[in-house]
């Protein structure tokens, strides 16, 4: 199964992958903060940062096609909100700025997660004293994304093997029920994981 769909390239070798985790994460956070806080007309900065990011991507040896496809998958979530800005005076400029800013931020995160294994990021968060409960939640989330995807894939396969209708409406109706199923299963699984944690001394 596609166990590496989030961070497929995080374990390859390149100069960027060899940089220290602390450096990469802090650089990413500073970059994102600057991008968010700078005013709309800082075109020079946006262009400069974009060139830097493209440079880093080339050095990191991650295929450009992969990085762009990740960006396209994530972008709609941001655009859905920013489209509202089109309905105000001078909305076009705001819309374009949000588009540019969000692309830079998302691209930074995509680069970070694909050049640094997630467990190293978590280790670093522990080192800088992020509350351990928060780090634990992040770790659990990362661990179980894959289990949930496997679950969903198996369910979808089972559905496909037993449904003979080609009626799109019908298929989506079943999918909607499956989403509910996955939700219930996740809650039950969460219970069992919590038991397993307690069984080994978690308080």
């Amino acid at each position: 199964m596609r166990h590496d769909f989030i961070d497929r390239y995080s374990r390859i070798e390149s100069p960027v992958h060899q940089l220290s985790t602390g450096f990469k994460v802090s650089a990413a956070i500073i970059l994102i903060l600057c991008t968010i806080l700078l005013p709309i007309h800082s075109y020079g900065y946006f262009i400069l940062i974009s060139i830097c990011l493209i440079g880093v991507s080339i050095i990191s040896r991650i295929p450009a096609k992969y990085l762009l496809s990740r960006l396209i998958i994530l972008e709609p979530f941001v655009l859905g909100v920013s489209i509202l800005s089109l309905f105000q005076p001078k909305g076009e400029i705001i819309f374009v700025t949000i588009l540019v800013k969000s692309s830079i931020c998302l691209y930074t995160i995509i680069l970070l997660t694909n050049t640094t294994p997630f467990s190293k990021i978590l280790d670093w968060l522990k080192v800088i004293h992020i509350p351990s409960l928060f780090v634990t939640i992040l770790a659990l989330m990362y661990r179980y994304i894959f289990v949930l995807i496997d679950d969903a894939e198996r369910m979808e396969r089972a559905r496909a093997s037993r449904s003979f209708s080609t009626n799109k409406r019908q298929i989506w109706k079943i999918r909607a029920m499956m989403i509910g199923q996955i939700f219930i299963r996740s809650i039950e699984r969460a219970d069992r994981i919590y038991s397993a944690m307690r069984a080994r001394g978690w308080k």
Partner: peptide, 25 residues
Amino acid sequence: LLFQNPDDQLFCPTVFEDVAFGPQQ
């Protein structure tokens, strides 16, 4: 206690952290 489903019991990102979980607690 060894649980029925290994995926419920392996909740840490790496094997080391998972085995170390109990002693850490």
